[in-house]
Design a protein around this nucleic acid. Structure first.
Length: 863
RNA sequence: GCCCAAGUGGCGGAAUGGUAGACGCAGGGGAUUCAAAAUCCCCCGGCUUCGGCCGUGCGAGUUCGAGUCUCGCCUUGGGCACCA
């Protein structure tokens, strides 16, 4: 009998699928469509096991839906612009384009052997001029509709390398290459008006029924809708251009506990003051040496500087509050200025204690919990807004209210007294898309001395990145934007007046590229961004799958982009939400193997350099003992990466697919272990052996009860596996298939029933192990390809048993078990339970107070 | 710091509020074999006076019943707007 030989059968069946053109998707309005998409990869050079897991999950869904009769679209492409290509060019010469396309070729070569049911004819990379040219067309449409604008914004500036740094490139406030202290610098940049859609993007989350709740919560918090009071304090002694300070607060109920006003170092008032006050200038300069990330601002030590200015409290003009500049106030949120109420905000309290500012409580707990109030040295009292508290200094005198009621009452009171107005604000900021880098999509506008900013004409698209025009190769050896210093590229004619003018040298954020690729897959070679007919048929993405790390930015940007594309006529109304269902998967982790060098620094080793001898882990080469450090996300620098290519070579693609699905729930991180892969391979070989044996049996009936038992088990397995695949419970579905394989191998049923069960097994496994399933299908003498066989359906009547075994608890502890007819009445179940010796013994003669019978589930006797 | 998750045997994990540990790995024992590989079978949370008792990160709570729900912690992971 032939042994399981994946190296032979996998290429054979892949060729068969190719020959049948099985995965090429063609729109067919007569058939229901299903669009499966995995977040496309960045072409870093090698696929790793995390990619394999992502694409295998998508492939299971795609193959399952195909078996259910859907016209499936399952494409693949490359998120190909971005910094690593430029960094590679800087580090080792060459051109980002060559590096990127080389990587794509390598990775495609590594992915093909996995046997994914991908329509490769739709493949594209975002760095293809055909793609980014259409992206430029989209940009021009957005510009026309007023969805893009320019404004000044701060960036990280490396004063030595004279270049803009990404947050990732700022390490401890210093440039990663130069080591120079990073400065904040203002540049005029392009922005998408995503904040205009805050309310819509927030409200529409409720319609996303098949998105994980956690992702919707994260997006809602990110959008950050808040209700508050906006008003201004008047300065006791105004300065040039400033006689008031406008503030926004979500806690106007604490206004009578205000103790100071604080503004951002980037606030116009702070900027005015620094011109004439060296102390303020020095403080602001220090603040600006911090990075631009919110994380850095929020975790930095809270510092302030007293401006010496005073403001009047709006409800008591004799009450004066100091104005401080504080490093933790964000200019981007609210008005860039706040009032501090230390009694009810821990950060304000820390600030007040540090700078000896007053602490005044406005409310207190209903019942004394023994905790002193903040003004008596206790912590800030910050109850949930829904909690009732007693107001000491409220707008309605001493009353009991929830925070929510008090906030609304405060807003009403302030509005009635002409102090500000109630407003709704969002934390979401507009999306800055300008990048001062080469390897991105050029922004298709021209700067003309006479006409200003002029959009490029659509017929001149794409605005191509220069490669080596005039024999001038792009120079990446010096930092900065090569487009900026290119001798000729930026020189062009103004599309409006024809005068000599200069191209925009900024390129687009790579998030732009990934915000519409899903739409482009529906017509990857259309001469407009989308083809309306194709988009109408294929959109939306029915199942989107990717890493949880994209829960906010990528998905929010894509949701905005789809709306913008709809406004410009590139997507239908229904595609304002482009992803019907979302699944977020966990990462693949691996233990880190390390030894120490002479100085005690860790030296990392690849898993294949390590082996276990007599229970200790050692280096293969030297036998030196190896430390095993806790499992972590696979990364090249820690060498804890496993190359799927070598495992496919050793065990076959089906083994890799089976293992990545079986070992862990898909939403959770998975630890890769070689022994697991080996075990998966053994199991597939076992299935092959069992089915091959069954294939040789005569097609005849066996003992009726044996046949029925096997077929019952088959139908239960069909039911459970279908449920598992539907709900992304791949690991549970596979556990069920293990159990069914064991049942099948032990069954004494006749050849007919066994062949039927074996065929069902092959089908149920086919989304996970498509090659093996084709082989088994053929072995069993079935017609055609298993991918063309309709998904099996469970016979409901075969799922229910006549009797049911119930655990019997006494006071919640399991004491006995009874087997009763499935539809036995509650009273009879109760009698049967009480009749058991174990229950009688546990009761010790006491009479049961209550007996709870959950039909088909459990009996609990309460004493 | 803020937002969102996760935490169950030696390990990966299973469990619509209803028998905790399915299934798999590792380990132990056995069968087969001249021997091995391969394969097959059995055992496998801890304690136990063998009656049971204790066990799902920690501490409270709700419930007839909590891994699951609520509150408060701890730890780990993801995100924090120029990493992709």
């Amino acid at each position: 009998m032939a042994r399981y030989a994946p190296a032979e059968i996998e290429p054979k069946w892949q060729a068969a699928w190719d020959e049948a053109g099985a995965f090429a998707a063609t729109a067919d309005p007569a058939r229901p469509k299903y669009y499966v998409l995995e977040m496309f990869p960045y072409p870093s050079g090698r696929i790793h096991i995390g990619h394999v897991r992502n694409y295998t999950m998508g492939d299971v869904v795609a193959r399952y839906k195909r078996a259910q009769g859907f016209n499936v679209l399952h494409p693949m492409g490359w998120d190909a612009f971005g910094m690593p290509a430029e960094n590679a060019a800087m580090a080792s010469g060459g051109h980002p384009k060559d590096w990127t396309y080389g990587n794509i070729a390598d990775m495609r070569g590594q992915m093909k052997p996995l046997g994914l049911s991908i329509d490769w004819s739709r493949e594209f990379a975002t760095c293809d001029p055909e793609y980014y040219g259409q992206q430029q067309a989209l940009f021009l449409d957005f510009l026309e509709k007023g969805l893009v604008y320019r404004k000044a914004a701060v960036v990280n500036w490396d004063p030595v390398d004279m270049t803009v740094l990404a947050n990732e490139q700022v390490i401890d406030g210093k440039g990663w290459r130069s080591g120079a202290a990073v400065e904040r610098r203002e540049l005029v940049q392009w922005f998408f008006r995503i904040s205009d859609y805050s309310e819509e993007l927030l409200e529409a989350l409720e319609t996303l029924d098949d998105w994980p709740a956690k992702v919707k919560t994260m997006q809602a918090n990110w959008i950050g809708k808040s209700r508050g009071l906006q008003f201004s304090f008047s300065l006791v002694d105004g300065i040039e251009g400033h006689d008031r300070v406008e503030v926004y607060t979500t806690r106007p109920d604490t206004l009578l506990g205000a103790s100071f006003v604080a503004v951002s170092p980037d606030h116009p008032l702070a900027r005015s003051l620094e011109r004439h006050d060296d102390g303020i200038a020095a403080f602001n300069a220090e603040c600006r040496r911090m990075g631009t990330s919110e994380e850095e601002l929020e975790t930095a030590e809270k510092k302030g500087h007293d401006t010496g200015l005073r403001v009047r409290h709006p409800f008591d003009t004799s009450w004066e509050l100091p104005v401080w500049i504080a490093n933790f106030i964000l200019m981007d949120y609210g008005t860039g200025a706040i009032f501090g109420c230390p009694a009810h905000d821990q950060r304000d309290l820390d600030f007040a204690r540090k700078y000896d500012l007053p602490v005044i409580s406005t409310f207190a707990p209903l019942e004394d919990d023994g905790q002193p109030l903040a003004e008596d040295g206790g912590p800030a009292f910050v109850p949930p807004k829904s909690e009732r508290v007693i107001y000491i200094r409220g707008f309605a005198g001493e009353t009991e209210q929830t925070g929510e009621e008090a906030v609304e009452a405060a807003i009403r009171f302030c509005e009635e007294n002409g102090v500000g107005r109630g407003v709704t604000k969002y934390r979401l900021r507009d999306w800055g898309l300008s990048r001062q880098r080469y390897w991105g999509c050029p922004i298709p506008v021209v700067h003309c001395d006479d006409c200003g900013v002029v959009p490029e004409k659509k017929e001149n698209l794409p605005v191509l990145l220069p490669y080596d025009e005039d024999g001038t190769p792009i120079d990446f050896s010096v930092p900065g934007n090569p487009l900026d210093r290119h001798p000729s590229w930026a020189h062009t004619d103004c599309p409006a007046c024809g005068k000599r003018a200069r191209r925009e040298t900024d390129t687009m954020d790579t998030f732009v590229d990934s915000s519409w690729y899903y739409a482009r897959f529906t017509a990857p070679h259309a001469e407009t961004p989308t083809d309306p007919e194709e988009a109408a048929y294929w959109m939306n993405v029915d199942q989107y799958i990717g890493g949880i790390e994209h829960a906010i930015l990528h998905l929010l940007y894509s949701r905005f982009f789809a709306r913008a594309m709809h406004i410009c006529g590139h997507l239908p109304e229904k595609s304002k939400e482009p992803f019907e269902a979302l699944f977020t998967q966990g990462m693949v982790t691996h233990a880190i193997y390390q030894t120490r060098d002479a100085e005690g620094r860790p030296v990392y080793h690849f898993p294949e350099e390590v082996e276990t001898r007599d229970g200790t882990t050692v280096l293969k080469e030297t036998g030196a003992p190896v430390e095993i450090v806790a499992s972590a996300k696979m990364s090249k620098s820690k060498k804890n990466v496993v190359d799927p290519v070598s495992i496919i070579a050793a065990f076959g693609a089906d083994t890799v697919r089976w293992f990545v699905l079986s070992d862990s729930p898909p939403e959770r991180d998975v630890e890769w272990t070689a022994s697991g892969a080996e075990a998966a391979h053994k199991h597939l070989a076992r299935v092959h052996r069992i089915v091959a044996e069954i294939a040789g049996l005569p097609d005849e009936a066996g003992q009726p009860e044996e046949d029925e038992a096997l077929l019952r088990e088959m139908h239960k397995t069909i039911h459970d596996v279908t449920q598992g695949v539907e709900s992304f419970g791949f690991n549970a579905a596979i556990a069920r298939l293990y159990a069914f394989t064991a049942t099948l191998s032990k069954s004494a049923a006749g050849g007919g029933a066994k062949r039927q069960a074996a065929a069902a097994l092959a089908q149920l496994m086919s989304p996970m192990t498509p090659h093996l399933s084709e082989e088994l299908w053929a072995l069993l003498g079935r017609e055609g390809l298993v991918i063309d066989a309709p998904w099996p359906e469970a016979d409901e009547t075969m799922l229910v048993e006549d009797t049911v075994t119930l655990p019997v608890q006494v006071n919640g502890k399991r004491r006995a078990e009874i087997t009763v007819p499935r539809d036995l009445g509650k009273e009879d179940v109760e009698k049967a339970a009480l009749a058991t010796d174990a229950v009688a013994k546990a009761l010790e003669g006491a009479a049961p107070r209550k007996v709870i019978v959950v039909p088909g589930r459990i009996v609990n006797v309460v004493v």
